[in-house]
């Protein structure tokens, strides 16, 4: 580049009569644009699946009642179209005066993973990955050391010298995931359950990094479930089939528990190790456990204040 050269010609619209360079540039620009369009073509194939209504949908907590209904009907129609299944999307609200809590008796849990399996079915998880909100750790007797734990065991249970520790969302009173989220796509409901608006989440996974309990999951691809296995009773904030590219988590089965039922994982437990209920109700079983058993919570030192208690019988 020497300073003696004449001024460069203007791009594309060359005013000079000798427009060879300008012509070449125009050709280059056209070729370049075509190349970019080709490279990005998969985006257009993907965009066909995202409707305008879905793109413009407001945050759950800003939807008016009629807008909510429209969203639920749209999601039901989408499910019919994509999976050929009639589902009902409900939206049960937190019950005033209720704060849910969970307790798990480590003395009688046998590590059968029935809870994880029930979660898998109830919450419409992707079949191929065998996803579940519960991970059951086989722990070595003599301490509670996750470093010696193993969540991938594949043998008859219970094994001698081992105890079993299922871990799921702790529904923290002070949830680090909620603080981390840059767009309020996840929040804590009045009954203490932390939920995700799957239609608002942008999939940055900062909440997944923030969670100290490995409780959050990301939809690395669209979940695949055979039509006959889809659970049709779905909650907007809980077990409806999640879209690709968003976070999800345990919601204490709010579509069941807010209707007076127990979480699927509790119902599936063959040993009765799980206790669930309203901690504000002085006569509830969960209240009795928390008041009378030597309970502990995971990683108490982090100040997350879990609503999930572990205890031993003896």
């Amino acid at each position: 580049m020497s300073s003696g050269q004449p001024l460069p010609s203007l791009p594309i619209l060359d005013q000079e009569p000798t427009g060879r360079r300008g012509f070449l540039k125009a050709c280059g620009a056209t070729l370049g644009l075509a190349a970019w369009a080709t490279a990005l073509k998969p985006l257009t194939e993907w965009a066909q699946d995202v409707s305008v209504e879905e793109f413009l949908q407001k945050h759950y907590r800003e939807l008016k009642p009629d807008e909510k209904q429209a969203v639920f009907r749209r999601l039901e129609a989408d499910c019919k179209q994509d999976h050929g299944v009639d589902v009902t999307i409900s939206d049960p609200q937190a019950i005033p005066g209720v704060q849910f809590a969970y307790a798990l008796n480590l003395s009688i849990c046998i590590g059968c993973r029935k809870c994880a399996e029930a979660c898998h079915i109830e919450n419409n998880h992707d079949r191929a990955t065998n996803n579940s909100y519960i991970r059951v750790f086989e722990m070595v007797m003599g301490g509670i050391d996750f470093e010696k734990g193993d969540a991938t065991y594949d043998h008859p249970v219970p094994q001698p010298g081992k105890f079993y520790m299922p871990v799921q969302c702790q529904q923290c009173e002070n949830p680090p995931c909620v603080t981390a989220c840059p767009i309020e796509a996840t929040w804590q409901e009045k009954d203490g359950i932390v939920v995700v608006d799957y239609n608002w989440c942008i999939g940055c996974r900062y909440c997944e990094a923030a969670c100290p309990y490995h409780a959050r999951r990301f939809n690395w691809e669209a979940p695949q479930i055979p039509a006959e296995e889809i659970n049709p009773d779905q909650g907007y904030l809980s077990n409806r089939i999640r879209p690709q590219g968003v976070m999800e988590k345990c919601t204490f089965c709010l579509h069941r528990t807010r209707e007076g039922k127990m979480p699927a994982c509790l119902e599936a437990c063959p040993t009765g190790a799980r206790v669930f209920g309203n901690i504000l109700d002085p006569h509830s079983e969960i209240r009795w456990v928390v008041e009378n058993k030597r309970t502990f919570v995971l990683k108490e030192e982090l100040g997350t204040k879990p609503r999930f208690y572990y205890f031993f019988d003896e």
Binding site: A47, V50, F55, H59, T179, A180, C181, P182, I183, E184, A185, W200, C201, I202, G203, C204, R205, Y206, F218, N219, P243, Q244, G245, V246
Partner: peptide
């Protein structure tokens, strides 16, 4: 960061005023 997003189509949720900007709590 954009390529790390699972849903880049929802990028507008991050725009203050239009989306929902969890400021000042979220470090992001």
């Amino acid at each position: 960061v954009v390529v790390d997003l699972g849903r880049p189509d929802r990028f507008w949720h991050l725009i203050p005023g239009i989306g929902k900007f969890n400021w000042p709590m979220s470090m992001l």
